[in-house]
Design a protein around this nucleic acid. Sequence first.
DNA 1: AACGTTGAAATAGTTC
DNA 2: GAACTATTTCAACGTT
Lengths: 96, 96, 96, 96
Amino acid sequence: MPDIGGIAGEQLRQYVELIERLEEEKAAIAGDIKEVFAEAKAAGFDTKVMRAAIKHRKADPATRDEQAALLAVYLQALGDYASTPLGQAAVDRVAA
Amino acid sequence: MPDIGGIAGEQLRQYVELIERLEEEKAAIAGDIKEVFAEAKAAGFDTKVMRAAIKHRKADPATRDEQAALLAVYLQALGDYASTPLGQAAVDRVAA
Amino acid sequence: MPDIGGIAGEQLRQYVELIERLEEEKAAIAGDIKEVFAEAKAAGFDTKVMRAAIKHRKADPATRDEQAALLAVYLQALGDYASTPLGQAAVDRVAA
Amino acid sequence: MPDIGGIAGEQLRQYVELIERLEEEKAAIAGDIKEVFAEAKAAGFDTKVMRAAIKHRKADPATRDEQAALLAVYLQALGDYASTPLGQAAVDRVAA
DNA sequence: AACGTTGAAATAGTTC
DNA sequence: GAACTATTTCAACGTT
């Protein structure tokens, strides 16, 4: 950053202020979420259950992807082993 | 656990979906922030220092100074006071 | 922390130095782990597969606990709803 | 994926189990560190400041000062230079 | 070798 | 105030 107080400084200021604005928006939304939980609680719901449910719905696809990735890794590993004589037998055994 | 309790279940569903929508918005903004940091980095700024600057601006000045002074005290107690910014004055002030 | 440089200072020094020693040990073990991965890689294994396997073995019990906790939460939620007339019917329906 | 490839599988198993043992040791030490912090807190120390002090001692002095100086520069560029420790001197030095 | 990506560690905030 | 959750930060790894 040459030119302190000059062009680069101005650019930095713009980046920083933009980020600060975005963080404010983010904080505002976080506040909204908190409010909704508070409302739900006032309506008699157990927020702990709600959080568990939300987490569950969110985690489900993620877990699926993770499992798929893991399977891919394993399959690739099988592919590598398959190129050795011992490995081929093992693959045949698994495939059966 | 679909629709247990009838009306209450529906209400719960609405709360949950509202929260999920808000969380998506929040995640989107977090992504935007990341992008801005990436841009700033590409423009030659040190994002780690940028983060420190943003935190500095956000922090309450009184609390910030207090923590810095206490750090100076601790470092002095550890016999490792060579290069702390606020210096001896801070230690004296806290000790008083 | 009154008594800077005195008794409390000495106590602080001992805590800090103990922690630093423990962190060194931790770092040493982390280094060992890295070495083992390097050896395994040199022996022809795919470290990515290894990491996936380790993660899998580690995550399995954790996932099980999480599922159990989630189930408990749901059961409790059902218990709450069961105390309302509408809820009881729903529980009966699910139980059937 | 048990024992695919015979001998290689056995070797893989040994690597994995060694790593798992090392990770357990690492986790145990992490637990010890946590305990020490808890003790220190009970003794009246500010653990947050303790962590800062430990980090300060660990950091390379040259790097540390450089980052601090750069922070001062950024804050100055942001027109928010009221209370930075290293002061104007650092800014001048970097600017030169 | 820098870059983005990912996983672990630390910190902050919230609830009971 | 103690535990838990969520967010943020830091470090490692493979990748290009």
